[in-house]
Design a protein around this nucleic acid. Structure first.
Length: 265
DNA sequence: GCGGAATGTAGAT
DNA sequence: TCTACCTTCCGCT
């Protein structure tokens, strides 16, 4: 399930496993038959992740743009692809060598776009903690001028690209910031610290291929169980790992927000 | 087997 | 602020 770290992993995986190869594209489900026809037979060039957007260069100034949304998934495999399981919107296969394939299910967006259209999408995206070209000065300015709560700002992909509900809750806990604090009320040092921590967290997410935000000192030793991977996300009513106060939750703009009312006063 | 929730966004109101 | 999108998984019956 996708926040920015997942999409970055997908971009790498497509580059390493299908890059430079002729693609066979099909839409077993049928909803992307036209687009698959445009991709079929092309060679996969570069791949790029920007926030939660994945771009695959299929040549001739055309890109496959995929946004997984809430429940979209990519499934990768080697060897002969199995009969499609569930509704496979797009199946990509590399026709040479080992026979690598990738199945796409349930995306919010899957379309073939031109290079200018790709740039237009990217122009609307904010700073991506995983990208070297992240525009940090603009990010800092946007936050320090905003009357919106920081918990809302972090989910705004035009400000920060790639942060989802887990990283929002967890990064604010780690920064000891209330999700309800207005952006403009937060000292610049704290905003810079939050940004630096997001970079650490997402890079760690890429490395582990999962989101782990608890420091080693705040969880049992050994293999990290799912219930020990977070401080507040989906821990409503459970004691805060740092102070024991029950974790609070509230629905904000249709999403569940989790925080410790004591640590993040 | 069913209902609800889920790491998200776009478009209508 | 709301609903639609549309898939998977989990808990409950």
């Amino acid at each position: 399930m996708p926040e920015g770290h997942t999409v970055a992993l997908h971009a790498r995986r497509f580059a390493s496993e299908l890059g430079g190869r002729v693609l066979r594209a099909s839409s077993p489900q049928g909803r992307f038959a036209g687009g698959a026809g445009l991709v079929d037979g092309r060679v996969l060039g570069g791949t790029e992740a920007h926030g939660k957007q994945l771009f695959l260069d299929v040549g001739d100034d055309r890109w496959l743009r995929v946004h997984l949304g809430l429940y979209g998934t990519w499934t990768f495999g080697e060897g002969p692809p199995p009969p499609p399981i569930g509704a496979v919107r797009l199946r990509l296969e590399a026709d040479a060598g080992r026979g690598v394939w990738a199945d796409l299910r349930g995306p919010t967006a899957c379309e073939v776009v031109t290079t200018p259209e790709k740039h237009a999408v990217q122009a609307r995206l904010g700073a991506d903690p995983l990208r070297r070209d992240a525009d940090v000065p603009t990010l800092l300015t946007r936050i320090e001028r905003s009357r919106a709560p920081i918990g809302t700002i972090l989910m705004d992909q035009t400000v920060v690209a790639g942060i989802g509900n887990v990283y929002r809750a967890e990064s604010l806990f780690r920064a000891r910031l209330s999700p309800f604090a207005e952006g403009r009320s937060i000292p610049r040092d704290d905003v810079e610290g939050l940004w630096a921590d997001l970079r650490v967290l997402l890079r760690d997410g890429v490395r582990r291929e999962r989101i782990v935000t608890t420091d080693a000192a705040d969880r049992p030793r050994g293999r990290i169980r799912p219930e020990d991977a977070h401080y507040v996300y989906r821990r409503t009513g459970l004691p805060c790992r740092r102070c024991g106060t029950p974790v609070a939750t509230r629905e904000v703009a249709g999403r569940n927000l989790f925080w410790c009312p004591s640590c993040q006063a």
